[in-house]
Design a protein around this nucleic acid. Structure first.
Lengths: 144, 144
DNA sequence: CTATTATACTACTATATTACTAGGAATTGC
DNA sequence: GCAATTCCTAGTAATATAGTAGTATAATAG
């Protein structure tokens, strides 16, 4: 029941892009240095964000990445589901293929539904913009 | 972010014990047959529940297992944490050993805290007794 | 037009975890 | 003492995780 590095890195990567969103695109190398993450691994992660259209890439010198839309557009759930896969606590909530025969008589299914709802209520309401806010509050606290 | 078979089986096992709680202890073989789970695997899982004192075992012929306390005593969280380990979505919420240096400036930590709270609000309030209720409702629906 | 800087793509790999299986030892009721 | 049951330990195939490595491709500055 842990979020893997892939999902956590993807979030920090997107947050980093949101925080450094001026005209110039941000290079993987810089994100990797700031976040202390392997740049080669980040490259793979950002590649899937790119394919999904969450970021846009600019190749060549002075190239890098930018968010495709405003931070408020991206929920944490969007980013985590893209990199982690489904966030449902059990496979039988995912799709019809994984549904088991016990479904109808399974009391634990109700539990998993409630857990799933609780998880969704967090990841589908918090956006990158919220993370940006929180980050800026933390920085303010440091200055004070 | 999935609950493993170990945790899911442990829940179904405890629910099975709660549902068949008359005088006679329940044999692993019977639980395994009803739940369609490998009995050897169940044996391992119940062993940790036994060591934790959640069930009591009776050896020899006519032996088996019984719940140590009433179903309302056991939250889903107790059972899952025992078999799955921590249910926190990231390791830095678990213990001091796993806390990272970025803690103070990490905006995603606030996200993980909220996700953790959401998960806890479900698993620490729902008990085996609730699962028993739901199971009995399902059975009633079948009869109607 | 070429050297440089950056992303893009694909393959490989070490380690850990999951989900069991197998076999025998210990206990106890009849 | 025999059969039924739990108890204990070790092994293992398959999958997932968390990267590393190397090369190809594109764009730009000079």
């Amino acid at each position: 029941m842990k979020i893997s590095t892939k999902g956590r890195y993807a979030l920090r990567l997107m947050l980093d892009l949101a925080l450094h969103d001026n005209d110039a695109p941000v290079r993987i190398k810089d994100i990797a240095a700031r976040q202390e993450i392997s740049d080669k691994y980040l490259e793979q992660i950002i590649s899937s964000l790119n394919k999904a259209g969450y970021v846009k890439s600019i190749r060549g010198p002075q190239g890098g990445y930018k968010l495709a839309k405003a931070p408020s557009y991206y929920t944490v759930g969007m980013i985590l589901r893209l990199t982690e896969g489904s966030l449902a606590p059990v496979a039988c909530l995912d799709d019809e293929v994984n549904q088991c025969i016990r479904q109808e008589s399974c009391a634990t299914l109700e539990l998993w539904r409630r857990l799933d709802d609780a998880i969704k209520s967090v990841v589908d309401t918090i956006t990158l913009a919220n993370l940006v806010e929180w980050q800026e509050e933390k920085i303010d606290n440091y200055i004070i």
